[in-house]
Design a protein around this nucleic acid. Structure first.
Length: 431
RNA sequence: GGAUGGGUGGCCGAGCGGUUUAAGGCACCGGUCUUGAAAACCGGCGUGGGGGCAACCUCACCGUGAGUUCGAAUCUCACCCCAUCCGCCA
């Protein structure tokens, strides 16, 4: 949510930011509504003040036994005037808020200009794809050959975009999540760890989704229960909403939270896209990281968070690259976003496995999430950041495809073996 | 699902038709005192609108929205939310 006062102070900068997002200028229209709104507020409040003064005089006059008819006559006509002005103000405010709620965050100055993902900029590339002595298979072929990944069974009970994992693959997924959580929840050491593990609700109300930007604009992408709850599309929602409508002390910042949860997405706009395999599912597990910071810290925290996500891939020895999204490809609430893309030999390409965004005060404003600065008066909005650390389902895919062997088995990355009961291979015949 | 109680500033909490300019306390920030700290005392301490270069002045805001009234935090209705008890249930 944008601050109308910021727009009022610098409408050119606002429109320039929108242009970078590929959007038409809006400042003039917004400010016109804002002028109407403020004029109506002034009118309403002045009328109200007059009413109250007269009413007080009536009370005083009564106390002295003096006549009140003249005062009563004057106050009589004010009611309708005040109500009308109040309604004008409320209507204008609703109109303004409705428009503001649908406008995306503006890109940070460091974000490269661009229209879509082709304009994203790679900023680093870590690790080298393994040279396989055989043709790489994709995760579907690997998993189904092992008999541990069953799309048909999932389709029978749930339809497309679901999967059943069994045995060592189910365990591998759990191992990955466990491994990620252990990494992020370790006591903060320099650029790693320090996140508090949270087990949040998976069903949330409207106001929570509003706070993290999914509402009102992206309702179609969500699942909703018959009695009005929403299934979380990411743990970003409950984790960020931990500070909804609250004031924290600056000394407690940054707050760092992590959670391993299923995520639910209707994939309404994704018909026909990524239909094969586990890449795009209605339900998938993800380890999410959320940081709540003071404004001055958020840029550094963004780098740190991205590093935490990258560390998972480094320790799993999976090749990846990190890109900074261009202005036209960023999500609604982000001011700057890093995507981490893992190498998938089965698809011969890098695929997104994490997205780390700095939202600035955009969500904080919607949530009314503030902090009390050490120095100075009042409260200020916090900055919120979120990042996947990582998408567990896609990490499973990456392990299968990068660690596949010629005999159809899959090696277990060294870092995961403690979580796999010491086993170093999936699909190996025992004995 | 049924019943009851309740939503007041960062937190707790009084107020239940007109000196409320929303008491009091806690927390926090200044100051006095002290070697320093604590305690004590003094002062400050919400958001938004309008005006002013500014110190500042002024108006509105007691979950949300309607209503009653000359006048509403206070009365009425609806809705949202929270708590407790009962029922059902992993």
């Amino acid at each position: 949510m944008h601050d109308i006062r910021t727009i009022r102070d610098n409408p050119e900068a606002f429109d320039a930011g929108l242009r970078r997002r590929g959007l038409a200028p809006l400042a003039a229209g917004l400010l016109e509504i804002d002028r109407r709104r403020r004029a109506a507020i002034t009118e309403s409040e002045q009328t109200q003040a007059r009413r109250r003064a007269l009413s007080k005089q009536i009370g005083v006059a009564r106390g002295k036994g003096e006549p009140t008819e003249a005062l009563m006559a004057e106050v009589g006509g004010l009611d309708a005037v005040q109500k009308a002005a109040e309604k004008k103000a409320a209507d204008a405010e609703a109109e303004l808020d409705g428009l503001l709620a649908g406008i995306p965050n503006l890109p940070d100055a460091e974000v490269p200009d661009g229209a879509d993902e082709r304009d994203n900029k790679e900023i680093r590339r870590i690790g080298n794809p393994r040279n396989l002595a055989f043709d790489a298979r994709d995760h579907v072929a690997i998993g189904e050959a092992l008999g541990l990944m069953d799309f048909a069974a999932a389709a029978k009970m749930s339809g497309a975009r679901f999967v059943v994992l069994k045995g060592q693959l189910a365990r591998l997924q759990r191992a990955l999540a466990q491994f990620m959580l252990d990494l992020h929840t370790a006591p903060a050491a320099g650029p790693l760890g320090g996140y508090t593990e949270v087990d949040p609700p998976l069903l949330v109300r409207d106001n929570a989704l509003y706070g993290t930007n999914q509402l009102p604009k992206f309702a179609e992408d969500q699942f909703r229960t018959t009695n009005g709850y929403w299934l979380i599309p990411t743990a970003e929602v409950p984790l960020t909403n931990l500070v909804n409508d609250s004031v924290v002390d600056e000394k407690d910042l940054p707050l760092r939270y992590t959670a391993w949860t299923p995520c639910f997405r209707s994939e309404a706009g994704a018909a026909g896209k990524d239909t094969r395999g586990m890449i795009r599912q209605h339900q998938f597990p993800k380890v999410e990281m959320v940081s709540i910071t003071a404004p001055e810290q958020s840029a550094d925290e963004h780098e740190r968070m991205t590093g935490c996500a990258e560390e998972v891939l480094k320790r799993l020895d999976l090749p990846f690259r990190t890109v900074v999204l261009c202005s036209g490809d960023m999500g609604f609430g982000a001011r700057k976003t890093y995507d981490i893309e893992v190498w998938l030999p089965g698809q011969n390409t890098y695929r997104e496995i994490s997205s780390c965004s700095n939202c600035g005060d955009f969500q904080a404003r919607r949530m009314n999430a503030r902090y009390r600065p050490r120095e100075g008066k009042g409260t200020r909005f916090v900055h919120t950041l979120n990042g996947s650390g990582l998408a567990v389902g896609r990490t499973l895919i990456a392990v299968l495809e990068n660690y596949q062997n010629g005999d159809g088995t899959v090696s277990v990355p060294a870092a995961l073996r403690p979580y796999m009961g010491g086993s170093d291979t999936i699909g190996a015949v025992k004995g």
